[in-house]
Design a protein around this nucleic acid. Sequence first.
DNA 1: GCAAAAGTGTTTCAGATACACCCATGC
DNA 2: GCATGGGTGTATCTGAAACACTTTTGC
Lengths: 248, 248
Amino acid sequence: MVMANPKRTKQGNFYLYVDTVVLTVSREKSLEPKARLQVLVMHRPTAPKGKWALPGGLVADSEDLPDTALRIVKRETGITVPKADLFQVGTYGKPNRDSRWRAISVAYVVLISEPETPAPISNSDDARFMSYRRLRDESLLEFDHRTIIRDARRAARRQLEDTPIALKFCDSEFTLTDLRWVYEAFVLDRVDPANFRRKVEQVKDFVRPLDSLITFGSEPGRPARLYTAGKTSELNPPVRFRRKLRPR
Amino acid sequence: MVMANPKRTKQGNFYLYVDTVVLTVSREKSLEPKARLQVLVMHRPTAPKGKWALPGGLVADSEDLPDTALRIVKRETGITVPKADLFQVGTYGKPNRDSRWRAISVAYVVLISEPETPAPISNSDDARFMSYRRLRDESLLEFDHRTIIRDARRAARRQLEDTPIALKFCDSEFTLTDLRWVYEAFVLDRVDPANFRRKVEQVKDFVRPLDSLITFGSEPGRPARLYTAGKTSELNPPVRFRRKLRPR
DNA sequence: GCAAAAGTGTTTCAGATACACCCATGC
DNA sequence: GCATGGGTGTATCTGAAACACTTTTGC
C-alpha cells in the first residue's frame, strides 16, 4: 500500500548501505587464542593498494536489510552466509564518515565455520580473510570500518555468552574441545577444559552428546566424545568467564 | 567533497527515520519498581484516537543521527534532551513495518530526570509520558514501536550495569536511595539497601560523597548523605544483580 | 517513646577457578 | 612405556545475598 508522498523530495541526499562483518575462527592448531579470529575483507577496484574494506553495498527497494547483507557479501567476496545467523551491530551515520558522499551504514555480523575460498564476482578485485588482531591494530581498513569490526567483535562476544552462535563456527558434529577453541578466540585467553566442560553441559539443551560416538583422529591422546547442537536459542545459564584468580 | 554519482537514481524508494525512546523514572513514592518507568509518546494528527507513537522523523541532509533525534523530539513533544546522552538501540528496516511506505528507522534511547511537561510544537497533537508496563502489555503503539521500546529498555538496562547513565535520572545532588530507586525500576524488583550501598561505593569514581552534607527533608527516618556524580564513564566493577536466593 | 529510614557488620551460599588424578589412545 | 589430550572429582576462593543490629531523624 504505497501512497504518493509530497515529502518525497525532502530526502535523498545520502545512501543507505549495509556493511557486513563475516567472522571465522582459524583451526590452525598452533595459534594462540588472540590470533584465531579472522575477518572477511575485500578490495575495491578504486581503493589504494593495501587498503581494505568490509563488503558493503546499497539497500535495494523493498529488500530486507539482512537480504542486502547476504547479496552483497556473495557479490563482493563469493562467500555464502546464512540469513538466519546475521545479527545487527549498529548504524553508522556521521556525515563525513565517507569522503565521497554521505553514506549511512547498517552493520551486520555473521559467524561461519569452514569458509569457502573467497572469490569476488563484482565490485571488488580481491577478497580474503585477515587476522582480526592485525586489522584492529594497523590502519588497513577504509572509512570507519575499524570501528565497525571492534563493535562487531564486542557484539559477537555478547552473543556467545547468551546464545548458541558459537556452534556456527563448528561442524555439525564437534568435540567440546572444538567448542572451547571458539570461546577462547573471543575471550582471548585459554580456558580450563574441565571447567568449560561442566559449564557447557549444565546449559539446558545447548549441546547433546552423540551416543557413544568417538573421534578416531590423528591427534595424540584419548579420543573425544562427539556432540551435536541442541535446540535452545538462549543459553540458560549463560556461558560467562570471570577473570582469573591468582594460582593457589 | 560530494561528487556527482551515476548510481544516484538507484536508491530513493524509502525514507530514513530516527525514532527516539525518551525514558524517565517516576518519583511517586508509592510506586512499585515495575510501575516506575515512563516512556514519552506522542499522537500523530492522522492516527486513530488512542494510538500513540514514538517521536520520530526524517533525517535531514548532512545531519548527524543524534541531531535528528533531538530536533524531532523537541518538535513533536517539546522536550529537550541532551545530545551526549543518546545511545543507539538498533535499526528497524522490515519492508512492511510501516503500511504507508517503506520506512527504515534508526532508534535511539535517552534517559532524563525531571522532565518538563510535554507540549508538542508540530507534527503532533498530543504528547505525554506513559507507563512502560502499559505500553508493553497493551496495544497502544503504532507500527513496531512496541518492539522498539522493549529493545530500548533492554539496551538501557545493560547501560545501567556498565556505565553511569543511571545518574541521568537523578539530580546533581542525590542520595543513594534516589539512585537505588532508579536501578529498581530497571531490575523490576526491590534491591537490598545495604548491599546496594556497598556495591555502588566500590565502583571507582562512580559517585562521590559530598562533605558531610545531609538532606533535611520531610521524610521520616535518619537523613541521608548526599552524593554527586563521579567522573568515570565506565563502571568498574559493573553494577549487576543476581537473581534472589531463597530466604534463609 | 515509637516508627522509619540511613548506615554497619556478619553469616551464608552459589558459582567459578585451580588443580590433582585417572582414562584411552598413538607411537 | 611414555607422552598427550579427554574426562572426573574436589578444595578453595569470591562476590553477592540475607539479615541482624546500631544510628539518627520526625512526630
